[in-house]
C-alpha cells in the first residue's frame, strides 16, 4: 500500500525528523519525496530511522560527494527543498555558504538544501554529528542563513519602523537564539571535557 502525504516543513528540521520517525514507528517507510509530497510504503514498525540534515552551505561537488559517502555507508538518502519555490531559472546569492556555493541555481544546490537520511534500525545510536567541534560547525551552518535574514530586517526596522517589519525581525531572531544557545552549550561541554 502506498501512502501519500503533503506537507511543508521549511526550516523546521527537527519537526520534519520527528514526523518521519513517527511514520516509521507506525510502519511507513519513505519511498519518494517531492516539493510537498512524501510517499511512503509499508514496512514493519520501527524498522527504519530518520535524520534530517541541512547542507545548504555545501558546494555542489561537496554535497554530492557527501551524499555518496552516506550511501556507501549503507544509508538511503533523499534530497529535499527548504524553500517552496517553483521557478525554473532560479538564481540566489548565499553569502553564508561555503566557497563555490555562494551562487545557488536550480541546476546546482537550489531546492536541494536538506538531506533526509534513512538507516535500518540496528540498535546502535544513529547520530550524524558526534564530535563537539563538528556539532559546533553544524549548528553554525544552521544559524548563519538566519543571520542574513535578520540583519537586513533589523536595518529596515531602524529606518522604517512598522509593526510588520518589527514582527518579522523578531520572528527571524528566534532560530538564531535557539542555535546560538545550542552552540554555547556545546562549547561549555568542550571546556569541561578534555578530549
Amino acid at each position: 500500500m502506498v501512502k501519500r502525504c503533503y506537507r511543508f516543513y521549511g526550516g523546521l528540521l527537527k519537526s520534519q525528523e520527528k514526523w518521519l520517525n513517527k511514520m516509521a514507528m507506525k510502519g511507513f517507510r519513505l519511498k519518494r519525496v517531492g516539493k510537498l509530497l512524501y510517499e511512503f510504503e509499508q514496512c514493519s514498525p520501527g524498522q527504519y530511522e530518520y535524520r534530517v540534515e541541512f547542507i545548504g552551505q555545501k558546494s555542489p561537488s561537496d554535497s554530492s560527494s557527501y551524499r555518496s559517502f552516506l550511501e556507501d555507508i549503507g544509508y538511503t538518502v533523499f534530497c529535499k527543498n527548504v524553500n517552496l519555490n517553483y521557478s525554473l531559472g532560479k538564481v540566489r546569492y548565499r553569502p553564508w555558504a561555503e566557497k563555490g556555493a555562494r551562487i545557488s541555481t536550480n541546476t546546482t544546490t537550489f531546492n536541494r538544501e536538506i538531506l533526509i537520511v534513512e538507516k535500518k534500525h540496528d540498535g546502535k545510536p544513529f547520530d550524524l554529528h558526534t564530535s563537539y567541534e563538528d556539532q559546533i560547525a553544524y549548528y553554525g551552518s544552521l544559524r548563519n542563513p538566519w543571520l542574513f535574514i535578520f540583519l537586513p530586517l533589523l536595518v529596515l526596522v531602524i529606518f522604517n519602523t512598522t509593526y510588520l517589519n518589527g514582527a518579522l525581525a523578531i520572528l527571524s531572531l528566534f532560530p538564531i537564539v535557539m542555535y546560538q544557545t545550542q552552540i554555547y552549550r556545546i562549547k561549555k561541554k568542550l571546556r569541561i571535557k578534555e578530549w
Binding site: Y66, L70, D127, H129, T130, D134, Y138
Partner: peptide, 8 residues
C-alpha cells in the same frame, strides 16, 4: 562511535 557526518 563516529557519526557519518563527523567522519566525513
Amino acid at each position: 562511535m563516529l557519526g557519518a557526518g563527523t567522519l566525513y
